[in-house]
């Protein structure tokens, strides 16, 4: 576990430092702009910036920030998942089984997501101060984004192993995407279902990797 986590942590931050800093800067700068332009900062503007205020009738600002945040965390998950698959495979896969590797990898993604999100919230705390209920929003934000991350890993595995299934799911997703991206109120309402889906997808991927002959290595 220690090897996989340290390896993921070092590589993710080292290889993507520019992207990570840009993301943090966008989040911080946007909060600051909101502070300058709005009369007072409230939970709604906070949710806008972390991408949890998506509405089809919402402003372009809300749509852009939803895409930015979801896109960034999908990028994080795929990058961490891919580590060990493209280089240094012999270091890991001759020492640990595929099933165990997947469990370690999920823990690694959970920890790195937590760290990044924590820094993001710290930056926003500088601007928003004590006006926001950070604890509750953080938990819901975290569960919703780790669900999206794991779902994107499932799609990634389908893309490399079951191309036809991937195309069908992708088209389906495209058709219903507006119902899938939900705002904070809905996340709040469906949090247990979202967490349940996260667990279910993880078990499904674990069984797929452990028992089905799929190529996870590039």
């Amino acid at each position: 576990m220690r090897y996989i986590f340290i390896n993921d942590l070092f590589r993710f931050f080292k290889e993507n430092i520019k992207i990570i800093i840009t993301y943090f800067m966008i989040i911080f700068a946007s909060s600051y702009v909101r502070l300058l332009t709005d009369n007072f900062l409230n939970q709604d503007s906070f949710l806008d910036i972390i991408g949890l205020n998506f509405s089809l009738n919402g402003s372009i600002w809300q749509i852009l920030f939803t895409c930015l945040n979801i896109g960034f965390y999908i990028f994080l998950a795929i990058k961490v998942f891919e580590n060990n698959l493209s280089s240094g495979s012999e270091n890991v896969f001759l020492r640990v089984s595929k099933g165990k590797w997947y469990i370690y990898k999920v823990i690694s993604i959970l920890i790195i997501t937590f760290l990044v999100m924590f820094v993001c919230y710290l930056l926003m705390f500088i601007i928003y101060g004590y006006k926001i209920n950070y604890g509750m929003i953080f938990i819901y934000n975290y569960i919703y984004f780790i669900f999206i991350e794991i779902f994107s890993i499932l799609l990634y595995i389908f893309y490399y192993n079951f191309k036809k299934l991937f195309v069908i799911i992708f088209i389906l997703l495209f058709l219903i995407i507006k119902y899938l991206i939900i705002d904070f109120r809905l996340i709040n309402h469906y949090i247990f279902i979202i967490f349940g889906l996260f667990v279910f997808i993880n078990i499904f991927i674990y069984l797929l990797i452990r028992f089905k002959k799929i190529d996870i290595l590039k």
């Binding site: 390896n7 012999e90 001759l94 089984s97 089905k212």
Partner: peptide
């Protein structure tokens, strides 16, 4: 059996370390 070979170590292409 969908397993990696037992008690095997390898150095393929170039070594990868941190």
């Amino acid at each position: 059996n969908n397993v990696f070979p037992p008690s095997t170590r390898a150095l393929i292409e170039k070594p990868t370390f941190l």
